[in-house]
Structure formats: C-alpha cells, structure tokens
Design a protein around this nucleic acid. Sequence first.
DNA 1: CTGCCATTCGTTTTT
DNA 2: CGAATGGCAG
Length: 722
Amino acid sequence: MTSLLDGLNPEQLAAVTLPGQSALILAGAGSGKTRVLTTRIAWLIQTGQVSPLGILAVTFTNKAAKEMLTRLTGMLPINTRGMWVGTFHGLSNRLLRTHHREAGLPQLFQILDSADQLSAVKRLLKALNVDTEKFEPKKVQYFISGNKEAGLRPQQVEVFDPYTRRLVEFYAAYDEQCNREGVADFPELLLRSYELLARNDALRAHYQERFRHILVDEFQDTNRLQYRWLKQFAGAQSVLMAVGDDDQSIYAFRGAHTGNMNEFQRDYAGDNVIKLEQNYRSHGNILDAANALITQNQSRLGKNLWTAEGKGEPIRVYEAYNDQEEAGFIVEEVKALQREGTALMDMALLYRSNAQSRVLEHALFSAGVAYRVYGGLRFFERQEIKHALAYLRLLANPDDDGAFSRVVNFPTRGIGARTLEQLADAAQAGGTSLWQAARAKAPASKDSAKGLPGFVALMQAMQDATQGLPLPEAIEHVLHMSGLAAHYQAEKEGADRLENLNELINAATVFANDPEAMAELDEAGGPLASFLAHAALEAGDHQAGAGSDALQLMTVHAAKGLEFHAVFLGGLEEGLFPHEQSMNEQDGIEEERRLMYVAITRARRRLYLSHAQSRMLHGQVRYGIPSRFLDELPSALLKLVNARRMATASSAYHGDAAPASATRQRNTSPWRIGMNVRHAKFGVGVVVSVEGQGDDTRVQINFGGANGMKWLALEYARLEPA
DNA sequence: CTGCCATTCGTTTTT
DNA sequence: CGAATGGCAG
C-alpha cells in the first residue's frame, strides 16, 4: 500500500507529521504548500489522531477550500460532509445560521456583498441628509469595513477629531440599519461570529472541545479580526498550523496584517517554524532572480528558494520605445513560443494595473491571438442577476430595504422618486421597513397592476405562487411574474442578460441537487436562504469559456497561486511598478517588491520583463524610467533582447506611431523629450518636457524613485546626456 | 423615466 | 484617453 507520505521531502514530511504541537509553516512559492496542508489533514485522520469532525481548516477563497476538499477525498475514503473546511466568511455564515438566536440575527438574515453594502451606505447617508461631497459614500464604507476588520464597534473607535466623530455616528447608524433590515455585510459575518464566541462561554467551550486541529492557509493574508476569530476556536488542547509566506503578502492594502505571523509564533508556535524552501516550479535563474529581489526587503522572516533543476534560460529583458511597441514585441514572442509548441493557455501576460491590458488586447486582437482577460464582472454581480436575487431576497425577508429599493420600480411600474421619498419618510416615522410602510400605505388592489398597490399585490402573489415550490421553479415564477424576463426580452441588447437569467435557474438546479449544499439546509434556514447565501459568498466565475486554448491576461495580484510555462511582465517603470501611489505609503515599496516577487515566481521556464520609454497614460504621453526592480536583479541572470535604440530609430517598428512629443518640441535647446540625462545630485532621469528659450529654458525631468519629478532651469542646473 | 451631456477620475481585490 | 457617474432637460 502506498503511503500518504510517499514523495514528501524532509521538510514537508516534518510539517505533515508534526506531533501534537502548533507550528508555523513558511511555505515559499511553489514549495507544495497545498499538498502539505491536505496531506497533514489526511494523515491526522488516517492515524486516528482526530476525527474528520475535529478538523477546522480555513482558507481565503472558495477555490482553495474546494481544492482542499477535492484532494482530501482523493487521499482518503472519507465523507467530508459536516467537516469544517471553508473560507472565513463561509464558516462564519454557518456558525451564525446555526446560532442565529444567540447572535441576535434573524435566521434568514441576508448577506450584503460590497456593492450591496455601498448602496446601503448611500441609502443611509441620504436618509440622514448628509452632504455626500463632504462624506463620500465610498470613504464611509471603507471606514466602516476597516473598523469592523480591526474588530472595533462604533463605541470602541477612537475619536480624535470632529470628522471622525461624524464617521463613527454613521457607522453606528449603519449598524442599526442593518439590524433593522436583518442583513449582514462581509466583515459583519466575521465580527459577529467572533463576538458570539467571545461572549458565550458555553458555546466557545463547545467548539474548542471539538476542534482539535486548526489549520489556516495563506496566513499572511489574514487581518486582525480573522486572527482573533481563529483564537476563539483554539482551546488549550488545540493544535494549530498556520501556513503562509510573508514574502507573498500583497494584500496589506485591504487590511492583511503580516504581524499576525509574528504574533502567531509568540502565541502558539514558538520555535516550531518549518521552512519549505525547495521549489518544484521554476528553473534556477528565475528563482535566483526572485531571491535576489526579495532580500532587498527589510522586514521579512527570511527564506531562500532553491531547486533541484538546472539554471535554465536567462531572463529576457526588453526595452521598448513605447507601450504599443512593447505590446508588439510581446505578441511576436507569444507567437514564436506557440510555434515552438507551447500552448497559449500556458503563457500569461501580467501587469500591475488593469488599464495596461487595453494596449495588449488591441495588439493581440489585431494579430489574431486568442486571449482571455481575468477580472471584471462575475456572474452573481451582474445587474440582471442582482435584480432577480433582490426579488428572492424580498421573499425571504420582506424587511430587506436594500432589496426593496432595488426592485420596487424595476422593471418600471410607474413608481417615481416622489412616491419613494414619501414611503421612506413613512417608514422612518413609523420605525418600520419600506415593505411594511408600502403595505400600510397602499393595500394591494386586484385591479391596479401599476403603482405601489400593484407592487404590493405582485409580491403577495409571488409569495403565494412560490410557496413550497422547488427552488428552480420558484425562480422561474419570480422571473416571469416580476416582469424581468419580459423586460430583457423587449430590450435590444437584452439577449445576453436573458441568457444569464436562464443560467441563474440552472445554477439553482445544480445547487438544489448538490448534496453538500443541501446537507446544511436545516441550519441555513431552507433552500432559498442557503442559495442566496451561496450567491453572496461565492460570486461565481469571472467569465465562462474556460478550457479553450487562450493566452491568459491578468494582474499580478490575480496571478498569485498560479503558474505558467512562460510569463511576460510588462510596464516595469517607476510610477507604474512600483506604483507611484505606493511610494508614499508606509512600507509601500516593500509590498510592491513582494508583488514583483510573486510575478517572477509564476514562471516555470521562461520569463520576460519589459518596460517602455514612454506610454500613454490618462490621455497623455508619459515618460518613465526603468523600474528599480530591474536594477535589483543580478545582471548575470538577465539577457537584454534588444539593442538599445535611440528614440528616433524606433520608426522602423511603428512608423505611424510617431510620438506626440515630437510636435511639442517647439524649442531649439539640445534637450529632447524622452532623452536620458544625468544630474550630479539626482542621478539619471528622463526629460519629460521642455519650456522656454535660451537662458530661460526649463526642463522637467523624471528621476524616479525618491527624487521624482523635478523642474530644472538649464541656466543653473548642470545636466549631461546619460 | 429615458437619454444626453458634463464632469470627474483614474492601484491592487476576496469574501 | 475613455469609463463611469451624476445632474438635468425633454
């Protein structure tokens, strides 16, 4: 019989079979992290150290949770049903449904995704007559979520100025609104679960007794609240294993707290730190480059990846004249690789920000190369799906004002802004929900299909018609009775949306036939509620059409956890990567460097890095200097794949793409836009613009990095061509 | 309740 | 430059 442990390297083996002690696993990129995690669980169960129900395994994404369960069932003939393997939010949802009474929530509480949360904030600010110029809804939302993720309720937020005081008031009013409506946003799921366990000794004791082994994936991405959440489940006899890589922490901007790794060491692991440094993904040169780069970071726990494989090819570096030419080069290389037999699917174009995909897409489209862009709207975030779900939410919970507002006049049934304002006032005065106010104000009348009475009648009819029906059939009724189906049928561009609505019925059918999902029905409060929770917690795929051989385009963030035979990383210029907004932030550069590290370590065999002397940004040409990250890579590992050309020589590539700057050069000075210069104090930079004549000539130079943009008077500044 | 124009604003994103 | 709002007129 083959053992679970076959083929593990010594460090992996040590991590998998660590006896009953907590440990921190520092798992480098491509070091078999998921394998260790799942094998550990399987080993614990197989050796009888714990029952499947004694495991608590937490991940960040649904994808990771599913992957873990799939691999687990492949290793052991166990029933994963009832096992606590899931995301922080998914498991919180489960806990809160089970103990909704103790948590002070209705059983059918609805989950607000970020967009729903933003509408809820807007609605609140409107009701409070707040000037949204002064208090932007986005900022208010960010404030509320940020505090929740730090574990702070309104009373606990420190107030040191009137502006913050106001924000705290909004936070408090927002929470009241959510409670009144019976809804919970994403951070609320976590905070509420945390508070439930922190306050309820019996419940906490129960779960601590149950979970003997707690395992956390991507620990470097946890925020403060998530760590506190975990600690509630950890009892005196619990064994914790946190797996993470501080070098791949790229989500500080959304609250990830790398300090959790140090705290975890202090609280649980002590000296039990196992480093997984053998990389099974990339060739040596790629790893050497990644290592050299990341050692520039001051704050890290320290790790060095190595591989048993050879050095492989050098990293190719390309300097383009502009962004279009950069795209042209990439497309040519992609086609060449494709001819050599690399599948498009196994190549990726990575970039720092989504805006960069445009030029690449254009070039790919012109060249007839199939590609797929990740990111953008996901299935359950589409307008028509949101509308349909809002009807369903209203059926499950009539007090959900957010859902009510969304569909009361969609499709339009002649309910104007004035009516709604009156309704909102009535609801506020009576302390009721919009639905209750509507019912009081406009009792359903049979003959009026329009107006508020029509809507009240509609909802009641819908309630009756869907009562007791299986989920997919109920949804079909809702789509037709609400008029959504007819509305999109009539719309010129509605075909896709109609198709999506049908897809929603499909999704419900699949969901209703999924024994996993159905097993939790009782605690979830019925099929409708659990389907709605599923829709909110798992927004679905970004795009359909997977499987076909297409080049993959995505941000570096989106590429985390993936690997490709060949990786192209473009836009390596100061201000873009590292992004200029990060330069001001605390530890911003270090996070950008980790991002670069993530990008490099995605490549198995071939890595291209490119930058452009100029690129179109915000409608104007911007001149950039090469990213500092290029300088931080050992030049012995790099191969420059183009002879350094003067700007003028580039016309050979794109005769029609003459720089806009040429027309702006209306002076006679020897300094040209785009040329490299050296300044005694500021170092090497690029001339960005030139103004004035003769002695009055001033030039603007981008020195990048700490020096940034500078205007220099030629009369005084001593510049020399570089 | 559309549709049109003006204005604004441009990182990264999962749940 | 171009998307994405938001306000206002019809």
